[in-house]
Write a protein that binds this DNA or RNA. Structure first.
Lengths: 199, 199
DNA sequence: GTCTATATAAAGATAGAC
DNA sequence: GTCTATCTTTATATAGAC
């Protein structure tokens, strides 16, 4: 377990590697890419990557930590821009739509979560934190909406937080797997679910 | 693209390999297991596997075809045992619970779907068929329920078929990734969703 | 149907020069 | 920070004996 840099201290070269690695994971998973794949895309040689990230686990840990941090920033942004719970939930669904929309990329943590048994323990731990954070945030928002009378009071906030998160993560998996057979992206499915939650 | 045996013609030895391969994929994904892993579990040597399945793509194609076939059988069984749409949907959710419940295994096609860009084309095609079949079946059941007045008529059957399928697939991914942080399995989440669909 | 032996290539990683 | 060269291990696969 080598000590790795914090994502805030990355040089431009290292940041580029993290960018490319993230995209490759979102497409093919942890075991679906290699340092060689990154090297090809970035235009350097394989061993140069080890200078920045000694091991693959180091690299992916930083990728995941940065992803998590950016997601937290996005949640804060939503809180700053939307006052009411239903709108906050819709904006949340939009985050998943943006990830998926561009190139049918999966949520990084969705992908790594599916592979949980086949990734380094450090990575699996970051991924677990990602989901705990998201579930807590969604639960809080739903409870807030119930207090403010914008969401139905009869539903269990925790259950419906999970329902929304799972539907969004699942929409990306099923969407890319089913190809053109599916026409609803995460946003549309999320909106349908959120609609049924409204007071 | 070598011609491979049909899953109905497997010898007991070959069937055992398919069993083990399926479990390994459900835990670690296509790129998360090797012939060596299978050999270790089954108790034979690696090259013996090639006698039954020349390539990894051959093996996984058969695994997926058999999985798909069994799933179709399960859908037929539900149709034979449950007359009403809400009960059919609950029985459907139960299928996912059984897969996930035992050892936190993912749906085979959920896993392979997530990895779609990193698996052989033959496999990706089987997976696509799996999701098309499931979406069509769920849509039909929901429409039937709407005609029979057991499910709400205002909802879009196609959208809610996707919603249920995505929530169930997502529940497995999120559940294993979040660890003990999640307490609702696929069945509980599915039941909550189906409840909101009832007329 | 399974084995040993072997081939080939890829993946992850290190050493040391520039 | 990047390179060439090299090492080690693993993955996938083949050949041929039992």
């Amino acid at each position: 377990m080598s000590e790795s840099k914090h994502f805030s201290e990355l040089t431009p070269a290292a940041e580029r590697l993290v960018d490319v690695a993230q995209g490759l994971i979102q497409r093919g998973g942890y075991n679906g890419f290699s340092y060689e794949d990154i090297a090809r895309v970035v235009g350097i040689k394989k061993p140069s990557i080890h200078h920045h990230f000694p091991t693959k686990a180091d690299l992916v840990t930083v990728v995941t930590q940065r992803y998590m941090h950016r997601f937290r920033e996005a949640l804060l942004r939503i809180e700053g821009q939307q006052a009411r719970a239903p709108e906050r939930l819709l904006a949340y669904a939009e985050l998943f739509e943006q990830t998926y929309g561009a190139q049918r990329q999966l949520c990084l943590c969705g992908m790594l979560g599916a592979e949980a048994d086949a990734v380094p323990a450090e990575v699996a731990q970051e991924v677990q934190q990602f989901f705990k954070t998201n579930l807590q945030w969604l639960t809080d928002v739903i409870e807030q909406g119930q207090r403010q009378n914008s969401l139905r009071k009869e539903v269990d906030a925790r259950v419906h937080a999970q329902l929304l998160l799972c539907a969004l993560e699942g929409a990306m998996v099923v969407g890319r797997a089913a190809g053109s057979a599916i026409h609803q992206g995460p946003q549309a499915l999320g909106a349908a679910l959120i609609h049924s939650l409204r007071a």
